[in-house]
Design a protein around this nucleic acid. Sequence first.
DNA 1: AGGGATCGTTTCGGAGCCGAATTGTTAGGC
DNA 2: GCCTAACAATTCGGCTCCGAAACGATCCCT
Lengths: 116, 116
Amino acid sequence: MPAELRPSQALRLWHDVTFDLVRSDQPDLSSRQQAVLLTVYLEPPPHTVRGLARKLNVTKPAITRALDTMGRLGLLTRRRDEADRRNVMVQRTLEGALAVERLGDTIVARHRKLPL
Amino acid sequence: MPAELRPSQALRLWHDVTFDLVRSDQPDLSSRQQAVLLTVYLEPPPHTVRGLARKLNVTKPAITRALDTMGRLGLLTRRRDEADRRNVMVQRTLEGALAVERLGDTIVARHRKLPL
DNA sequence: AGGGATCGTTTCGGAGCCGAATTGTTAGGC
DNA sequence: GCCTAACAATTCGGCTCCGAAACGATCCCT
């Protein structure tokens, strides 16, 4: 567990990172899309539409749309589950991994610059 | 400056907090709206539409709309600058301060629970 | 007083996202 | 073989947001 973080520092961190995300010209994702993307890249597979919808407490079409959008952006892919062809597996992509990695670096950098 | 934060921890933190924001039933703000809200509450006043637009690298109408939406939610208010009536000052509200405070608490709580 | 610059807001057409309901496909029990 | 259940995708009408452009109000300078 990292050292203590004060609320004012936490807010400053959130502000700075959000700020970087907004200012960057890469297409900005909604909170839901961010949550989906990070879940796929941080939690162990497999990830299905149903599972993501239940976990995030949103409807299935919302997940389908988020996957459409982020698929168009190349951040992840879909693949049918051959074992049970009703299921769709959400898979990672190289480009998505890079984007997530960039986000991690941004957070670390902003965290490092936090004032005492 | 807080202790070092590893990229994997940073991403986990971002995921967890975003997750909480998405799951909570309070209306979710876009990244831009979050950036505006946090700027107003963290940076010293005064805050004008023009200034926020320039700082966030977005157009003025985008700021106007963000203020409309968040004003409707009670998160902040507008007031004309009496010294120069062309300007609009963006002001904090009690409700907005509470929302920001809650966000800070969420981040701190999620940060505290990060695995080594 | 007049003219130009600087505000914030509004309008416009277009694009994205929302939940509810429906559809098509597949799996599994009888 | 059928019927139901489960899954993802699609459709639908409605809402929000987008940037570019136009607009009205205000200030400042001469």
